[in-house]
Design a protein around this nucleic acid. Structure first.
Lengths: 155, 155
DNA sequence: CCGAATTACTTTGAATACAAAATATATAGG
DNA sequence: CCTATATATTTTGTATTCAAAGTAATTCGG
C-alpha cells in the first residue's frame, strides 16, 4: 500500500475546501427547514445573545461580514420578531440589538452553525495541530491572494 | 518574544478561513470591475473552454454547483454574448454550451479565479506541507461536520 | 458656533446559490 | 401504442453577500 500521490493529495485538499465552503450553505438550508432560521441568522442570534445591546457594527465585526449584510439580516430577524432594534439615546447614530423572548427560545433550540462551531472545536486540538493548521490556511490564503481583510488580533 | 497564545492562533485560523471564503467573493467583484465578468463566470468560461458542447449538467458537476445555479449563470453569459446555448438534436432535453469568439477572448484576457488557481498553486508546495494541509482541512471539515458531498477522486 | 469630516447605519442594485415546482423530452413496461 | 417513470433544463422564490450611494448624527477645527 503505497502513500497517496501528490495529485491525489491535492485533489483531496481542493475537495475538502469545497466541502467546507458548501457545508456552510448546506447547514443553512437544513436549519431553515427544521427551525425556520438560516445559518447566518442562528449565528447572529448567538452573537447577540444575552448581552445588553450589541451594535450593528459590532455584530458585523463579530461575524466578519459587511455592515450592509448585517443590516438586511437584522431586517429579517426583526420581521420575524426574533430581534429588536433600539436606537441608543446617548448616540443616536447607533442601533442596539436585543433578542426577544422568541429569539432566545429559537437560539436555544437550534444547534450552533458551522462557523460558530469552529472556535470551540479548535479548542480541542493540540498546539502542534493548531500551528500546522494556521500554516496551512495561510498558505492557501496566499495562493488565493487574500488581501488581509481586518488585522485585529485582540490579544 | 513569546510564542502566540492558543487564543491568538485560533483567532488567526478562524480569520484565515473567513478570509479564504471571502477572497472568492472579493476576487469576483474585482474581476467584474476590471474585466466585466465575475469569478464564477470566468470559471464557467474556462470550464466550457474549447470543448465542443459541454452540457449544463456537466458544467454543474465540474463546478460543484447546483444545476439551477448554472442555468441562471449561463443566462447572464448568454446575454453578454460570451456563450451560446444550443439544443442537442439527438436528445432535445440536452443543452450544449459553446464559447463565442468574444467568450474565448474574455477567457484568455482574465486571470484564473481563486478556486481555479488553487490546484496549480498547491503544486509548488512540498509533500510535507501538502500532507499537513490535508490533515488540517480534514480536521476543519470534521468540526464543521461536512457530509461528504461528491466522492469523486479522479485518479 | 458653524461648516467639514467622520461615524453608524440603511438603501439600492447585482450576482451567487439552493430547493422546489414546472416544462419538455426520452425511455420502459404492459 | 400509450401511460408511467426518468432525465435535462428552466423558472420561481428566497437568502446571502458585497459595494456604492444615501441619510442621520456626532465630532473637530477654526
Amino acid at each position: 500500500m503505497r502513500p497517496p500521490s501528490r495529485r491525489v493529495v491535492i485533489a483531496g485538499i481542493v475537495q475538502s475546501l469545497q466541502g467546507i465552503l458548501q457545508s456552510v450553505q448546506k447547514y443553512s438550508k437544513h436549519s431553515f427547514k427544521r427551525f425556520g432560521v438560516t445559518g447566518p441568522q442562528v449565528w447572529a442570534l448567538r452573537s447577540i445573545g444575552g448581552g445588553r445591546g450589541i451594535t450593528v457594527g459590532q455584530l458585523a465585526d463579530a461575524m466578519y461580514l459587511h455592515i450592509s449584510t448585517i443590516s438586511s439580516l437584522v431586517d429579517r430577524l426583526e420581521e420575524r420578531k426574533l430581534v429588536i432594534r433600539r436606537r441608543d439615546p446617548r448616540d443616536r447614530r447607533v442601533v442596539r440589538l436585543r433578542l426577544t423572548s422568541r429569539g432566545r427560545k429559537t437560539m436555544r433550540a437550534t444547534p450552533p452553525p458551522p462557523r460558530g462551531r469552529l472556535p470551540k472545536g479548535l479548542e480541542r486540538l493540540n498546539g502542534r495541530d493548531l500551528r500546522n493548521m494556521q500554516r496551512a490556511l495561510r498558505q492557501i490564503a496566499g495562493i488565493m491572494e487574500v488581501t488581509e481583510s481586518k488585522p485585529r488580533l485582540e490579544d
